[in-house]
Amino acid sequence: MIINHPLLGPRDSEEFVYLGAADLINRPNNWEQDASAEDFYQYQYIRENIAGDHRELWYHEQGDQSWLVVTRNTLSHEIINVELAQDVSRGIGRGK
């Protein structure tokens, strides 16, 4: 399996570590509110089981140590898109 790293080009999956759905970037910010318990529960445990394009987090541990958001088709195993997780995170308004 080969992941086309946005900065380094195609690299063997042997260099990477898998984490899980890219939803893990959307960590709730409302920790002070009581209602956030449900949000954190959803964030931690609830996942779509997608037959199709799945956005997921991979870490280039034996490479440039960047976290990547990889869009992979779970049926064909085709990798459709690879982004830097940092960019994705900033893109949804995360910062400090």
Partner: peptide
């Protein structure tokens, strides 16, 4: 220059 893994070693 590249960083990779060889024989289980970064």
């Amino acid at each position: 220059v590249s960083r990779t893994i060889m024989e289980h070693i970064g």
